[in-house]
């Protein structure tokens, strides 16, 4: 049996760097709405005075907001330019072929936190594909794509690192 990774033309993407991306300033409104969505009522997300009364220098965001704090490059498209599943592209690897011939799920994540995110920060993400692997299981071949991202703020302070493993398998759609 041949390699699915080779068939897809993905092997050369191991080590591929994602384009560095700097987000717009983090909005207090988005922090508040995010905290409401995850039902975390800690006042440091809602009230600047409460945040400053503790160890923070201003309104801070939930730590896991980090990957959203830069926005999702390329995701903001008109509906006509999105795939039928609502997605814009596969996890941001530009020009990767055959991305939509597979179904994607999130496998796992590892986060390391160094400093908090504050309202009005401009966060930059840099990342690269660190590994691709394939495994033949009961339901066919699975492809594992691992990427590592580093987040820094406008003062070039490291905020967090984030390792994400996505799992892809050839689509098996059920009949409508």
């Amino acid at each position: 049996m041949g390699s699915l990774l080779e068939e897809l033309g993905w092997k050369n993407f191991i080590g591929h760097e994602y384009p560095a991306h700097t987000g717009e300033p983090v909005l207090a409104r988005d922090i508040r709405r995010y905290a409401l969505a995850i039902d975390d009522d800690n006042p440091i997300f809602f009230d600047e005075a409460a945040a400053k009364a503790g160890r923070h220098k201003g309104l801070t965001a939930p730590l896991n907001y980090i990957s959203w704090s830069v926005g999702v490059p390329g995701a903001e498209k008109a509906t006509k330019d999105l795939g039928e599943d609502g997605l814009s592209s596969f996890v941001g690897i530009p020009n990767i072929p055959n991305a939509f011939s597979l179904g994607w799920v999130r496998g796992g994540e590892e986060l390391e936190f160094f400093k908090p995110i504050y309202a009005n920060d401009r966060v930059t993400v840099r990342g690269r594909v660190t590994n691709m692997a394939e495994k033949v299981g009961k339901s066919g071949t699975l492809v594992f794509v691992t990427s590592e991202f580093t987040y820094t703020n406008q003062n070039d302070e490291k905020l967090a690192t984030h390792v994400v493993t996505m799992i892809a398998s050839p689509r098996k759609e059920e009949a409508e």
Binding site: D30, L36, A37, D85, S88, K172, E176
Partner: peptide, 24 residues
């Protein structure tokens, strides 16, 4: 709320017929 604030438009998170019939 979560999808809206982070601009996550993957239909499996809000479109039940798509999630169930198309994605199983």
């Amino acid at each position: 709320m979560y999808c809206a604030v982070v601009w996550l438009m993957d239909r499996i998170h809000f479109d039940n017929p798509f999630a169930v019939k198309r994605r199983g």
